[in-house]
């Protein structure tokens, strides 16, 4: 369980980058932490991991006060970084063997089983990581973060760099871990992943939590449909998206001809934009 109360943090006081954050992640819950780049996601995660101890407020994870974390705290958590950080001159098996030395033996999972779980091909397991694709490295990294059967998982963009099949597998593994009772703190700006996986999501913008709720409730409370119109303007294909209720008011725009009109429900990103006035990604 993660309990955060009145969490504020400044790299250079008094310029806070996190402003009095409050949230609780229950045991066995997948909690999505959504925000654009520079919103304070990574700083929050670093505070939760005990890397930035000079914060104000209270952070308790698995009964550990984060200001006083010792080795025992790190035995209970697993962290997946956005980039797959591994010893590139070691094989996947050797990497996992090496990192397993830091955990109590009874907590360490079987390396072959883990690599089966993340779907790393047997032919590659004893080859140096430098010969792996990004997806294979990401799978190995996921295996590393599951190595110690963690009670709490911190996942940063867990499907980044994976092919569609790999992404599906990773999402399955995350769900599987949740079913084992693992608490999962997922940091992402991929709203589809958050929508699919998270029990609850928090929107963070400029170091402040804007909203915390379940994806379904958020979508339900902002249930207006979107009308998307594709049209040609002086030979160029363009697209506009309008709230269905504003459809009549905004229909006047210059066009050669309308190519298509379709409606869709609100996505988590639409709601994020509506609530915060910001986009989740720069794409």
């Amino acid at each position: 369980m993660i309990k955060v109360e009145q969490l504020s943090f400044a790299y250079k006081p008094p310029d806070n980058v996190l402003h009095q954050l409050n949230f609780t992640v229950n045991r066995g819950e997948i909690f999505g932490f959504l925000g654009p780049n520079g919103s304070g996601k990574s700083t929050t995660q670093k505070v939760l991991l005990g890397i930035l101890p000079d914060y104000q407020g209270s952070v308790i994870i698995n009964d550990y006060h984060i200001k006083e974390v010792a080795g025992g705290f790190y035995e209970d958590i697993g962290v997946l970084f956005e980039m797959p950080y591994l010893y590139s001159t070691l094989s996947a098996v050797d990497n996992l063997k090496y990192f397993s030395n830091f955990y109590p033996r009874h907590r360490v999972r079987q390396i072959d089983e883990l690599l089966d779980l993340v779907g790393l091909e047997r032919g590659f397991r004893h080859k140096q990581v430098k010969h792996y694709s990004k997806g294979m490295r990401q799978r190995t990294s996921l295996a590393r973060c599951l190595l110690n059967s963690p009670q709490t998982l911190f996942l940063d963009e867990p499907v980044s760099g994976l092919d569609p099949a790999g992404a599906v597998l990773v999402k399955q593994i995350i769900k599987q871990e949740q079913s084992r009772g693992t608490t999962i703190f997922l940091t992402t700006h991929n709203m589809f992943v958050a929508d699919e996986l998270c029990d609850r999501v928090a929107f963070i913008v400029e170091g402040r939590i804007n909203t915390i709720d379940t994806p379904d409730k958020l979508k339900h409370s902002h249930s207006d449909s979107i009308v998307e119109i594709e049209y040609l303007d002086r030979g160029q294909k363009k697209q506009i998206s309008l709230d269905a209720q504003d459809f009549n008011k905004n229909l006047r725009f210059s066009n050669d001809r309308i190519v298509s009109i379709k409606t869709r429900g609100q996505t988590l990103e639409d709601i994020f934009i509506k609530l915060t006035g910001k986009r989740l990604s720069n794409d």
């Binding site: 991991l49 890397i51 705290f73 790190y74 962290v79 950080y85 010893y87 590139s88 830091f102």
Partner: peptide
């Protein structure tokens, strides 16, 4: 370069 120092930051190692 391999980012290993980041991994050490979350390992139960002194």
């Amino acid at each position: 370069q391999m980012g290993i120092i980041k991994v050490y930051s979350i390992l139960p190692v002194k």
